[in-house]
Simulated assay, not measured.
Amino acid sequence: MDITKRFNRVVAIYFQLQAKPIVKAQDLAAQFDVSKRTIYRDIRSLEQAGIPIYGEAGSGYALVDGYKLSPTRFTQEEIMTLAAAEKLMNKFVDPHLAKHFGSAINKIKAYLRSDEKSDISILEENMMMSVMENRFNKNVPSALSQLFESVAQQKIVNMHYQSSSANEVTQREIEPVGLFHQGSFWYFMAYCHLREDYRQFRIDRVQQLDLTNRGFTRKHKKLSYYLNKDEAPPTTQIRLSIARDFARYIQWERSYYGFVSETVKGDEVEMTFESKNAEEEFARWYLMFADQATILEPLSLRTTVRDLLTRIKVE
Rank of each mutant, 00 (worst) to 15 (best):
L63I: 08
R6K: 13
K313E: 11
K229H: 14
E268G: 01
S300Q: 12
T81F: 12
V169R: 13
H160S: 14
S300P: 00
T4Q: 11
V314L: 07
V260Q: 09
H181D: 00
I39T: 07
K5F: 01
L299I: 10
R202A: 15
L17H: 03
R41K: 14
I43H: 11
R9D: 01
T170H: 11
R205Y: 09
A166V: 04
F216Q: 05
F273D: 10
V10R: 03
T4W: 05
S103P: 00
R202W: 01
V177P: 09
A19N: 02
R302T: 06
I250E: 12
P234F: 02
L88Q: 08
R311D: 13
Q171H: 12
G178K: 12
A290Y: 10
Q16R: 15
G102S: 14
Q171G: 06
F32C: 00
Q146L: 15
T217R: 11
N139C: 00
I51K: 08
R239Q: 11
R244F: 05
I238M: 07
A190R: 13
A83D: 06
L287M: 15
G102M: 02
A243N: 14
K36S: 11
S103Y: 00
S165P: 01
E133S: 12
Y40M: 06
E56M: 08
T272V: 12
Y187E: 05
E253I: 10
L63Y: 09
L17S: 02
T212L: 09
E253A: 13
Y67D: 05
K313A: 02
S224N: 08
L144T: 03
E270W: 01
E168H: 13
N137W: 14
P21V: 00
N90T: 04
W252Q: 15
Y257F: 15
E253K: 09
K138F: 03
S275P: 05
K117C: 15
K221Q: 15
S45V: 08
S224L: 08
M288H: 06
Y61M: 03
I242Q: 05
G178C: 02
R202I: 12
E116T: 07
I242T: 06
G258Y: 04
Y286H: 07
R202F: 01
T263G: 00
Y111Q: 09
R202V: 15
Q76C: 02
E270F: 00
I156H: 03
